[in-house]
Design a protein around this nucleic acid. Structure first.
Lengths: 336, 336
DNA sequence: TTGTATGCGTTATCAA
DNA sequence: TTGATAACGCATACAA
């Protein structure tokens, strides 16, 4: 394989000028060239295995078909399906995804964004979890995933946390629970505060007071473990609504250590429906989030934004689904 | 924010020619310009917030600081840590990762590679699993992950499958098992054939014949489930070495359906040590692969290759670790 | 409908 | 050590 064919090679083979070839090869301007010559050019391109040099194109058009996808850590199981959804939507439109992890570190995020900005990216999908404003100018297209700015001036795609928590709370109440506690996620994440608020709201509308609320440092098993210990040292509860599945797993561990059975003694719920939580003992009752769809829709939104930057910033809220398994039991009779 | 500053702006501010500014700003050629003027230029660049236009640079140098990372499906839990390792190593060197999924589909892979090739990528990391040769010319830098070409002319990073399977087989034998079967992974993957061969070898060197070998269509729970049924219809075994954890999980399911207890009736082993297999019932005895390190080392190898294309193609084999949990029991007395 | 000319920002080559 | 110039491949304004 020698040097890749350029548009000039294609033009030469089709006996036209490079400009004509450019027009014929570009869907945008295809109609500015006669069908006959266009066909000849397309054929020549195919024959030569022509693939446009994106650097040259970017240099000329000041944009590219690449979008930056920024997440905290790919190893967090919620992100792979999201990123996959993003990638699929992007690819359907001929775009590519540039992936970067920030570990939730502001400095690393700034650094990454700076590096990416040098690449003439067409836009960004940000799935970092902090609630502060977007560290990008208004001249770049951005879609937020899993979080929103307080101002609401940036397009975003999130799952309906409130509806999910309400469904969980209602399920517990229907099972007879009245002493329900919450292991909240970090309060510098939008999901953390939204779910916490929904928990309080949900309880209040049913005339119940929370049995306790403990905030976790992180969405991790360890944090869930620690918070459960703290929570149960201060209060007793027959049910615990965990901020997400990881926290719920930590809760499982702490419960076992305290000699409490789940769900016989304490019911536990999660959030996210991560892979394999159906295989836990007990299988976790949780809320399923359409991760893939979130990613897919986010990319669609970004593409839309790129095409029409003036379009109003949509905020998409995707429905969630209650997944009942075995970690919720009817409240023990001795506790009623 | 107006138009980003160009090297011309920097040059103007530093009262030098653009070419000089270019030399001063490029670490490679920094020493070709006097320290005094260099300092002036660097200062001007800083003041203007100059960030080189990578499209222009790529156009000129015919390369970029971006590498393509191609995997079958990010949702397969083995890939996130690998990709994360790749990204970390890349970032340390100022490179970015362009991610694409192929679903193991040859057409989709070809398509993706073609699209990526237009991007002047510095190289590729291929984690697709087929054993056929690399669909890329010899002019591009490539490192394979999780597989190798038969010819061995392409650098690669893999885990030591053989050592892992041998450890598993020896463990089972030490527990008294003699009727050991294998649920092999797909035989068009290098891991599938390597582990199968290691299984047969391991057994043979201990003077044992396999109780049965069933090949799975895919590395999936469903395939493991089906293969287990087929296997146990044809033979009986007290231990099953699954091609990987997913297959082992499918095996769990089939065993339960057949009224067989694990590990009391049948011992099962996995491969990979995916997240959460320690939480299964029973906790899975498996082999841990250094996923992150594999990705990290693959990226290092690629960077090395990019810097020195003539360097010999290294083949890295990373050590694995036997993780003993509860899915392996001493062989039932009635079976000895 | 097609061809001509030009410039995007950078770096390599050559000359000074 | 620095400056001038050209070229990378493409897309577009303008001319024909």
């Amino acid at each position: 394989m020698d040097k890749p064919a350029t548009i000039k090679d294609v033009a030469e083979m089709a006996r036209v000028h490079a400009a004509t070839a450019s027009r014929a090869l570009n869907p945008q301007t295809r109609d500015k060239v006669s069908p006959r010559t266009a066909a000849r050019i397309v054929e020549a391109a195919r024959a030569l295995g022509y693939s446009p040099n994106s650097a040259a194109r970017s240099l000329r058009t000041r944009t590219s078909s690449v979008v930056g996808v920024v997440i905290p850590d790919l190893r967090n199981p919620v992100f792979p399906p999201i990123v996959r959804g993003v990638e699929d939507a992007l690819r359907e439109a001929g775009y590519l995804a540039l992936l970067g992890n920030t570990d939730g570190d502001a400095a690393r995020e700034r650094d990454l964004l700076a590096t990416m900005r040098g690449q003439q990216l067409a836009g960004f999908i940000l799935a970092t979890s902090k609630r502060d404003s977007v560290p990008l100018g208004p001249d770049v297209s951005v879609v937020l995933v899993n979080r929103r700015t307080d101002a609401g001036d940036v397009p975003s795609v999130v799952a309906d946390s409130s509806a999910g928590v309400h469904a969980l709370v209602n399920l517990l109440i229907a099972r007879g629970h009245t002493r329900i506690a919450h292991l909240a996620g970090p309060q510098d994440t939008s999901t953390g505060v939204e779910r916490r608020r929904a928990f309080l709201d949900g309880l209040a509308t049913r005339g119940l007071a929370p049995a306790g609320v403990e905030v976790c440092d992180a969405y991790s098993e360890q944090a869930g473990f620690d918070a459960t210990h703290k929570l149960l040292a201060a209060t007793s509860a027959t049910a615990i609504v965990a901020g997400n599945d990881m926290i719920a797993l930590g809760c499982y561990g702490a419960l076992a250590e305290l000699g409490l059975r789940c769900p016989e003694d304490v019911s536990v719920t999660g959030f996210n429906d991560m892979p394999f939580v159906d295989k836990q003992r007990p299988a976790l009752t949780t809320v399923r989030i359409p991760h893939y769809d979130i990613g897919y829709e986010a990319a669609r939104l970004l593409l839309e934004r790129i095409a029409t930057p003036s379009s109003p910033p949509k905020r998409l809220v995707l429905p969630v689904e209650l997944i009942e398994r075995n970690s919720v039991a009817r409240v023990p009779l001795s506790d009623t």
